[in-house]
């Protein structure tokens, strides 16, 4: 199973800004359990959606050479519930980027109205080893994953 929580990118400015949309639909199993008879898009999955939007933006900024891992959710706020049939729009901006990490600011909109904010710090884990070793291959941006990006019109490694 692929853990993809965005449907497509609608804007992508390398190293600066990305926007992605996600349609919330009752075809998704999880909504039937969250909650029975009252389906609501889980906030944690909206954080994941923002992490994917911002994480791909951060990864692309360094040609997908770094292993970009969510290190910290600095802030996550949501103003209301999101129901099936609504469309989420994740907008992520890179605030700072260094060899070790990146910081992004994110806004989420529902059908054009501001829903909330999700600000994230990502670690480029190979540069934060602290004595640990990670596999050499990039297990974050795998070949499968990069090819998937083509469907979003984001070039993998700026091919």
């Amino acid at each position: 199973m692929r853990w993809i929580w965005i449907d497509k990118f609608t804007a992508f400015e390398s190293g600066r800004y990305a926007a992605a949309i996600k349609n919330v639909t009752l075809a998704e199993d999880h909504l039937h359990d969250h909650f029975p008879a009252y389906p609501v898009m889980p906030a944690c999955l909206m954080i994941e959606g923002m992490a994917q939007t911002a994480g791909i933006l951060v990864g692309e900024a360094r040609d997908f050479k770094e292993k970009v891992i969510l290190a910290k959710v600095k802030r996550a706020s949501f103003l209301r519930e999101v129901r099936p049939g609504e469309q989420l729009r994740y907008e992520a901006t890179i605030e700072q980027v260094s060899p070790e990490a990146a910081s992004t600011a994110g806004k989420i909109y529902v059908d054009g109205e501001l829903l909330g904010n999700v600000d994230i710090v990502f670690s480029h884990i190979d540069n934060n080893l602290s004595g640990l070793t990670f596999p050499k291959e990039n297990f974050v941006f795998t070949e499968d994953f990069k090819s998937l990006l083509h469907t979003y019109n984001v070039s993998a490694g700026r091919a």
């Binding site: 290190a71 910290k72 600095k74 605030e95 700072q96 260094s98 070790e100 990490a101 910081s103 710090v121 670690s123 934060n128 602290s130």
Partner: peptide, 14 residues
């Protein structure tokens, strides 16, 4: 935690 240092460094820089 160690991860907070990445955040703190960015915030100090800004």
């Amino acid at each position: 935690e160690s991860i907070d240092f990445l955040d703190i460094v960015f915030r100090l820089e800004k």
